[in-house]
Design a protein around this nucleic acid. Sequence first.
DNA 1: CCGCATCCTAACTGATACTG
DNA 2: CAGTATCAGTTAGGATGCGG
Lengths: 119, 119
Amino acid sequence: MTIEPELCKVEDALGILVGKWKPIILLHLMKNGTQRFSELKRSVLGITQKMLTKQLRELEDEDIIERVVYPQVPPKVEYSITEYGKSLEPILAAMHEWGTNHTIHKQQKLMKKTTEQSS
Amino acid sequence: MTIEPELCKVEDALGILVGKWKPIILLHLMKNGTQRFSELKRSVLGITQKMLTKQLRELEDEDIIERVVYPQVPPKVEYSITEYGKSLEPILAAMHEWGTNHTIHKQQKLMKKTTEQSS
DNA sequence: CCGCATCCTAACTGATACTG
DNA sequence: CAGTATCAGTTAGGATGCGG
């Protein structure tokens, strides 16, 4: 590989995924397609309105998601992944796979430690 | 793709890369191999001893890097990527590539905006 | 040389109440 | 319904000094 650390753009990509709820919001939109604000709020368990709004704005600013407002009463706002945003899918998939494996790795490490102590 | 958001492990992987200096530390170790603490300190411009120590500990706790202490005076401590840690390389590479492209994407967006305003 | 401890600030996150 | 505003708690990051 050998990325020149001085020219590293990893942080730029990282910055977009970071935020306590961003990956899960993206996954919901990727899985279910267009979603209303309230649908997302229900889907992303535990998130507050304020946080959902904030994270959506940040993703929108990076062109990862699109926001469509229907001028009606009551208001209706729909969010969806942009074509550009879809380019993040392979990265999310890779991280999910690595993360899944890492969970196993940590469990094995823990079991080994426990075994050693009990012997 | 379709990762079940409820079973999402993206955050686990993300947590390991997050930290203002972790990606760059990893890239230095991946590029240059084993490095002493002081070498890393010199390489990672602007980092404080405290932060370098902290980030290295966190990476060590996840088995991404290995820490070898030589019991001598003055002390000598070497850090290197573990075999397991190398499995992160493809992800870093993918993120770097995406980040590089995203930088271009943002510049184009900015230029378009500027053009529209001047017209 | 390496790293810990302390103090400090800014940013992030959350609970809650209010508005068109 | 989809936000905004305010306040309070938590955490990340940085400056500095001490110690083996």
